[in-house]
């Protein structure tokens, strides 16, 4: 058990030499804080998905680092809650190269319509909601 500190005293020597954190050129993002569980909107500001998880891949060239290659959404939420890992073929990805900006929401530079993650939305639109009379009109 560590000895109790008196008020005003620091838990480390004040002249300790600490390593400088690397300062990458560009925006510094915390994956948990700025990416996970954020809303994703497409180029027309239409909500598309939530960043349920991230796919990381190792870079090919030296030095080897982990890169975010895709935002994941959909059934992967289940494994996020319960643990485990779905097979790679089951993942619904939004490629990281489609991300245009990261703020309080993650903005994509593409139309959501082409994306895999929206297949349920498309299916329900084409098979159910779009077929009910009035489903494709503006409300009055």
């Amino acid at each position: 058990m560590s000895p109790r500190l008196r008020r005003g005293e620091r838990p480390f020597p004040p002249d300790e030499d600490l390593p400088e954190p690397a300062r990458p050129a560009g925006l510094l993002l915390d994956a948990r804080l700025h990416l996970l569980d954020r809303q994703v909107v497409d180029v027309d500001e239409v909500p598309t998905a939530i960043v349920d998880d991230l796919e990381l891949t190792e870079s090919r060239d030296e030095p080897r680092t982990l890169l975010v290659s895709a935002l994941l959404s959909g059934p992967v939420l289940g494994t996020r809650i319960l643990g485990g890992r779905p097979p790679s073929s089951r993942l619904h990805r939004v490629r990281w190269s489609h991300v245009a900006a990261v703020g309080t929401v993650v903005r994509l530079g593409v139309h959501g319509d082409q994306l895999d993650v929206l297949w349920v939305e498309r299916w329900l639109r084409d098979r159910v909601i779009g077929r009910i009379p009035g489903g494709r009109h503006d409300p009055e």
């Binding site: 909500p47 159910v128 009910i132 009109h137």
Partner: peptide
Amino acid sequence: LAQFLGWSWGKFRRPAQAARFHT
């Protein structure tokens, strides 16, 4: 549900543009 799962929602959209919300 739509806000938790990030679906498009809202009465200002046509039902077909917020299909999961209306479902």
